[in-house]
């Protein structure tokens, strides 16, 4: 990344949406509780490969890295995650509906 060629720096700015703030909060809370370190997150991010840095947004990469570390640490299993995501995805079309209005 550092030192590579790249286009102009885009100064668009968006307000962080609720789900992004939640990802950030989960990252800080779980690292504070010893579920992972910054290095553990970093490793998961690096393992995603270069394409993830083009195709995924910032907080998409973070939730993927947080999830991987939590599973590795045994906070929950891959099966539990799969079942929960399937349950979430049939709740509704939008984030608000899927998050049960929370």
């Amino acid at each position: 990344m550092g030192g590579q060629d790249a286009g102009p720096i885009c100064d668009d700015q968006h307000d962080f949406s609720l789900w992004e703030k939640r990802v950030d909060a989960l990252m800080i809370l779980c690292s504070g509780k010893g579920y992972f370190t910054v290095d553990g997150l970093r490793r998961a991010l690096e393992d995603m490969g270069e394409a993830a840095f083009e195709d995924m947004s910032y907080y998409e990469r973070w939730i993927a890295a947080i999830n991987q570390n939590l599973i590795e640490k045994g906070a929950y299993s891959l099966e539990e995650l799969g079942a929960k995501m399937a349950e979430v995805q049939v709740r509704g079309q939008t984030y608000g509906e899927a998050s049960l209005g929370e």
Binding site: W19, C30, S57, E60, I63, L81, A98
Partner: peptide, 19 residues
């Protein structure tokens, strides 16, 4: 935020609820 629930958003909800 204007489009359908994304895969990663559903992961955030799932991770949060499991925690």
């Amino acid at each position: 935020d204007d489009t359908a629930l994304s895969y990663w958003q559903s992961m955030e909800i799932a991770v949060r609820e499991l925690l």
